[in-house]
Design a protein around this nucleic acid. Sequence first.
DNA 1: GTGTTTATCGTCAGGAAGACGACTATGATT
DNA 2: AATCATAGTCGTCTTCCTGACGATAAACAC
Lengths: 254, 254
Amino acid sequence: MPPYDPSTFPPFAVTVDLVVLTVRRHALCALVVRRGEAPFQGMWALPGGFVRTDEDLGAAAARELAEETGLCAQDPAAPAVGNGAHLEQLGTYGDPGRDPRMRVVSVAHLALAPDLPAPRAGGDANSARWAPVGELLGPGGGMGRDGEQPAPLAFDHARILDDGVERARSKIEYSSLATAFCPPEFTVGELRRVYEAVWGVVLDPRNFHRKVTGTPGFLVPSGGTTTRQGGRPAQLFRTGSATVLNPPMLRPEV
Amino acid sequence: MPPYDPSTFPPFAVTVDLVVLTVRRHALCALVVRRGEAPFQGMWALPGGFVRTDEDLGAAAARELAEETGLCAQDPAAPAVGNGAHLEQLGTYGDPGRDPRMRVVSVAHLALAPDLPAPRAGGDANSARWAPVGELLGPGGGMGRDGEQPAPLAFDHARILDDGVERARSKIEYSSLATAFCPPEFTVGELRRVYEAVWGVVLDPRNFHRKVTGTPGFLVPSGGTTTRQGGRPAQLFRTGSATVLNPPMLRPEV
DNA sequence: GTGTTTATCGTCAGGAAGACGACTATGATT
DNA sequence: AATCATAGTCGTCTTCCTGACGATAAACAC
């Protein structure tokens, strides 16, 4: 740590970028916006923006999330309310060449949201959409069908998205985070379809049911039932107080 | 994402801070340096410094690590060489008030090193030392003995250290990262004492031996034996090619 | 009613982990 | 030299968890 003069530090721009994930029609999807200006004009990118001078990093991410989706970042301690989303810091990307205009350090955040109506394009984004991660990342990282060509993302956003997807995939193993993809009340089958979409696998409904209902504090029955998935009525649950899943849910091999 | 003029972005200083952990005398220790200037002059702090204009974040962390300890950051792909340490990004801390002089965003990194000789103070640090995390964080986060008063760290470094310790504690559960605390060749007992120091628990030597030697690719025998721990000679191992531990090593309850 | 879909309960075999017993090979002590 | 203390290594036994899968239940479509 060499001595420094605080007035001569090298200046950086600091932004937040968002990996907003949801599950739509049995597929893991990410929110992307079309860039309206150079560089990478017309390409898809992750939503994001500058951190303001007196704003915390998490607050900047929550603000961007609200601007782009109308979602309210969820305090992990508070009970789930409508339109609340899980938000956590993902990682920071600061390669000197990642933005051709200037030195930008981007603090990426990961948000998990239940299925929403149409995304609303905010600010300068010409349009916004939910894109299946398989389309954005290709078969490798996104586990899309073979042969699909990934639509390239601006900047290093493909890498950020890949890291975010991997974080989500691994974190639902040992936490109750998968419920962040569900509405406040959901069935065991709906939760199972979240795991199936995020991991790209098929799980045994009976073993899954035994696992999630047998873990104390993971799910609490809300009393009601629903038939919105067809078939026999299913019990409705809310997320319980347990945030960690021990032993974890095991991701099937290959 | 409002439209912006790249020449009017709010300027930030970007630093890297290091949580360097090692195991010394059966205790998890962190590298701290004494601050030689205001603010927090005379207090202990995590080592760190400014990111240079054309330097990647990871490169800045590796440079600071080398300056402070002489350690060489280890490429995860390369085989272990002498004086190599594991280095990974931990998280980014950018609260507007965390540095009273100016707006500083710090990208914290976590480094795990084998037991070293005396730390060498680099640059402007009056001195540097390995401090048991229990002394720095108190009984809660650091699992120190009850009644100890934590020696406060400068800035928000106690929080950063706590996050780093928690990362290390959880990551050795499901990865071969604990071997980063060991010399290139080590015994099963030495590896077990690493787990015991990091977790602050006592593990059954027989079950631990069965677990680590029964996981394919985790440890490879190097052929030699040693009696440096006393008792019956123990087989020496190197870190194997397996980087994940599945099923994970279970941290005992409470 | 019959078939289809989804939910839920039960059974059984195999594997992993915690609790320990037993034995081995060193150096230190008497 | 005999004994002791220390650490390493191999087994055993019980318990818990998981994966595979049979069976039943309750809705809807026709």
